[in-house]
Amino acid sequence: MSASLKKVLAGVAVLACSAFARATDVTIHLSGSEPMSRSMMKYRCDAQGSKMGLPAGVFSVEYINGAGNSLAIVPVAGHSLIFANVTSGSGARYAAGSYIWWEAGGRGVTFSSDSIAGNMTSECHRAE
């Protein structure tokens, strides 16, 4: 095997290892007898969403419910953020840091952020 081919293979191996090192699995142990449920939904948001860190085009959000918890895992700025359900007058409202993911029935989902940069909002809808 040539020296340059060995260098290329070594570089590919380093990149592959670093990609796997970034992935993290989390196990959360919750007490209670309520069954857990998980579902995936696909969404597409307006152009403002990608400016706020949501993926351009269709992306998936995972919902996890059980043991008194309702969570939504939303991809924001290349990270999987865990949003927890918070009190809402209507629909399902989730919060993570300065972000809100609010699914209010027939009107779709509003993704918003209230940070030092100001209040930004994106309208999102389920995609097939």
Rank of each mutant, 00 (worst) to 15 (best):
V109H: 02
K51P: 03
D46Q: 08
V109W: 02
T24R: 13
A47G: 01
G49M: 06
Q48S: 10
L30E: 13
P75N: 04
A96D: 02
A72W: 02
D25G: 08
K7Y: 03
Y94D: 09
A19Y: 13
A10Y: 06
G66R: 09
K6V: 05
D25M: 04
F20A: 14
A10T: 11
G49I: 02
W102R: 05
N69R: 15
S80N: 14
Y43H: 04
T110F: 07
A92P: 00
G106A: 12
A95K: 15
R44A: 09
A21Q: 07
G106C: 03
M52S: 05
A13S: 11
I100W: 06
Y43I: 02
V86N: 05
S98Y: 08
D46G: 15
V14H: 04
G108I: 06
S98T: 04
A56L: 08
H79M: 13
V61E: 01
I82K: 07
A84W: 00
T87Q: 10
V8F: 15
S50D: 03
G11T: 10
T110H: 03
R93Y: 04
V58I: 14
H79W: 09
H79K: 15
Q48Y: 00
Y94A: 07
S31M: 07
F20S: 12
S18P: 01
N65D: 15
V12N: 04
G105E: 09
A47F: 13
T24V: 13
R93S: 02
K51I: 02
C17L: 14
G32S: 11
A104G: 07
S90R: 12
A47K: 12
L15Y: 04
